[in-house]
C-alpha cells in the first residue's frame, strides 16, 4: 500500500467525524434555538459541566455496571446454549422457537411490564439480556460450527490431550469470533440499557439523567449524554476488535 493511501485511510475516520460535526453546526446555525438543536460548542460546554459533577459519575458507572452484569449473564448463558445446540441437534431444534420468541418480544412493552413485576434497577438488566441473548447465541453457535473438524480428528489420531486440544487448537479458532461478538454485544447492551433506564426511570443512571434533562429542557445536556454513550461504545468496540486481532496470529 502506498504511503499516501495509508495516510488517507488513517485520516478517513476523522474526516467522517468532522463532516458530522460540520453538518451539526450548520443545522444548529439554521435552527438557531438551543431548545431544539444546541450548537456543538454548547453541547461540549454541557459535557464539561457533566464531567465535573459527582452525580454524573454515579450514573455513568451505575449504567456501565448494569450493562456489564446483563452482558456477562447473556454471554454465559448464550455460550452454554450454543454449545449444547452445537453438540446435540435435538437441543438446537428445541432452542430455535425460544430464540425466535425472545427476539420477537416488544422491548418497550417488556420494560414496562418488568418494572411492574420487578424493580427499576432489575428491569433494564433483564430487558438488555433478552435483546442481546439471541444475537450472542447465533454468533457463538456460528463460531462453534466454524471449528475445523479435520483438526479435531488430527488431534484424536495423534493422541493430543484434551487440555492441549482445547487451549492450542480449538480456542484460538473461535476466540476472534467470540471477542468480536462480545464487543458488539456489549456496545448494543449499553445502548439498550440507557433506553431501558429512561423508561424504567432507574435512579443513579444515564437514563435517569437523560429523563431529567428532558423534563428541564436541557437539550445540550441530553446531547452530551448521547455523546458520552457513543464514545463509550466506540471505545468498547475498538478495544475488543484490537483484542480479536491479537488473539490470533494468522
Amino acid at each position: 500500500m502506498k504511503k499516501q493511501d495509508k495516510l488517507l485511510n488513517a485520516l478517513l475516520p476523522f474526516l467522517t467525524v468532522a463532516v458530522i460535526f460540520g453538518l451539526w453546526g450548520l443545522a444548529a446555525a439554521k435552527v438557531d434555538s438551543e431548545y431544539v438543536l444546541p450548537t456543538v460548542g454548547d453541547t461540549f460546554a454541557a459535557l464539561w459541566e457533566l464531567l465535573k459533577s459527582a452525580e454524573f459519575y454515579r450514573a455513568y458507572f451505575g449504567t456501565l455496571l448494569r450493562s456489564v452484569v446483563a452482558f456477562a449473564i447473556a454471554f454465559f448463558l448464550a455460550f452454554i446454549a450454543a454449545f449444547v445446540a452445537y453438540k446435540y441437534d435435538k437441543a438446537k431444534r428445541a432452542l430455535k422457537p425460544l430464540i425466535v420468541i425472545i427476539r420477537a418480544l416488544p422491548t418497550i412493552a417488556v420494560v414496562l411490564l418488568l418494572v411492574l413485576w420487578t424493580s427499576s434497577f432489575v428491569a433494564p438488566v433483564i430487558v438488555t439480556f433478552l435483546v442481546v441473548f439471541p444475537t450472542l447465541y447465533n454468533n457463538l453457535y456460528a463460531a462453534l460450527c466454524g471449528i475445523d473438524n479435520d483438526l479435531n480428528e488430527m488431534c484424536k489420531v495423534f493422541g493430543v490431550s484434551n487440555k492441549k486440544r482445547l487451549t492450542k487448537v480449538v480456542f484460538p479458532q473461535i476466540a476472534p469470533e467470540f471477542i468480536t461478538s462480545a464487543g458488539a454485544g456489549l456496545t448494543l447492551n449499553l445502548k439498550l440499557m440507557v433506553a431501558a433506564e429512561v423508561l424504567a426511570q432507574t435512579a443513579r443512571s444515564m437514563g435517569y439523567l437523560l429523563n431529567t434533562s428532558k423534563i428541564y429542557f436541557e437539550i445540550s445536556t441530553m446531547l452530551a449524554l448521547v455523546l458520552i454513550t457513543v464514545i463509550t461504545g466506540l471505545i468498547i468496540e475498538f478495544l475488543f476488535s484490537f483484542w480479536a486481532k491479537k488473539a490470533v496470529k494468522r
Binding site: D150, C155, V157, F158, G159, K168, V248, K249
Partner: peptide, 25 residues
C-alpha cells in the same frame, strides 16, 4: 495400537508455527 498419520490434506494448525505444530503432537 497408537498410530500417527499423514492425511490427504496437511491438517496443520493454521495459527501455530511449524515448530509449534510439531511440538503439539
Amino acid at each position: 495400537g497408537q498410530v500417527s498419520m499423514v492425511f490427504q490434506r496437511d491438517r496443520l494448525v493454521p495459527h501455530l508455527t511449524v515448530r509449534e505444530n510439531i511440538l503439539l503432537i
